[in-house]
């Protein structure tokens, strides 16, 4: 009975445990603007494997989790940003037009040449500390959680309806085996779809208080199926490994704005909540 012990003492003494929360202000170090090639509701085409015929699909859902973000300094030091700070859910349904902004904070001042991030959640993180995945878990809890699975995260989802089916007014349930698209990637059994992407900036960006540099990244969704480097994925029964590999192919840095006006995370999060169509000003292209 007395074995109760020491564990208690940790919390008792530790009321003011070092907060994971950003206490040094909410200045946005840099913004990654993910500019998608198509929006939810847009059409795109994929080839059928069997007959090579092209099918037209309407995009219903496109979202993915980002974890393990790190940036590389001009002199090649990798700086990791904790998942409780930079873990993100990119959801095209929440885009401003086709753009989803990833706000990065807590990057130390300095010059940077690239960013690396994971698509999904590595098994190391998923099976590791609960606190360290707190933010990712919350982001995933609505639609990216897979409770009957040791790695509980769904890394990415793309869902689309075949236009043929739509024209025939077939209910979705009737067409499940037909040609609708539904690909969820995660880690299950011996398949692990976690992939890492590195994006080199065309010019270094400088992180400092006065600015919030932005990096404009094209996200070419069609390249999940027809990558520049990789295996073409056809409609039908795609190989999940090829498909996961192709995620690295969909991102392309277009340009950077090294001197964008400094933004504060609290302001933009506010904006994001009540953004009706206040788009306008930020986009200079």
């Amino acid at each position: 009975m007395i074995t109760v012990i020491a564990v208690i003492t940790f919390t008792a003494c530790n009321n003011s445990d070092t907060n994971m929360e950003h206490d040094n202000g909410t200045h946005v170090s840099a913004v990654i603007k993910l500019d998608h090639s198509i929006a939810i509701g847009d059409e795109f085409t994929i080839q059928q494997q069997a007959d090579g015929v092209t099918q037209t699909l309407v995009l219903d859902k496109f979202k993915f989790l980002i974890s393990d973000v790190s940036v590389k300094t001009a002199n090649n030091n990798m700086i990791s940003i904790p998942n409780n700070v930079a873990g993100s859910l990119i959801d095209l349904a929440k885009a401003d037009d086709k753009e989803v902004k990833l706000y990065l904070t807590e990057i130390p001042d300095g010059e940077y040449k690239s960013i690396t991030f994971g698509i999904g959640v590595s098994d190391e993180v998923a099976s590791g500390s609960a606190d360290a995945q707190s933010r990712l878990f919350d982001l995933a809890s609505a639609d990216m959680n897979w409770s009957w699975n040791p790695n509980s995260y769904i890394f990415s989802k793309i869902e689309a309806t075949n236009k043929l089916n739509m024209m025939n007014h077939m209910a979705k349930s009737e067409t499940e085996d037909a040609d609708n698209l539904w690909i969820h990637i995660g880690k299950k059994g011996d398949f692990d779809g976690f992939r890492t992407v590195t994006l080199d900036f065309p010019q270094n960006i400088t992180v400092k208080n006065e600015v919030s540099p932005s990096v404009h990244v094209k996200v070419n969704i069609e390249k999940l199926f027809t990558p520049d480097n990789g295996v073409t994925v056809y409609l039908g029964a795609p190989n999940s490994s090829d498909f996961a590999d192709n995620y690295a192919n969909i991102f392309e840095v277009h340009h950077v704005h090294p001197l964008d006006e400094a933004v504060d995370l609290e302001d933009v999060e506010q904006d994001d909540h009540d953004h009706s169509d206040s788009e306008g000003s930020s986009h200079s292209h």
Binding site: T3, V4, I5, T9
Partner: peptide, 26 residues
């Protein structure tokens, strides 16, 4: 073990910690 506990409580030594000294569960 009880020695360890009391030491730590002295170290923390605020009233809250002493309130917790019922130490039912661990």
């Amino acid at each position: 073990i009880s020695l360890v506990i009391s030491t730590v409580f002295i170290a923390c030594s605020d009233s809250e910690a002493i309130m917790e000294s019922k130490l039912e569960v661990g």
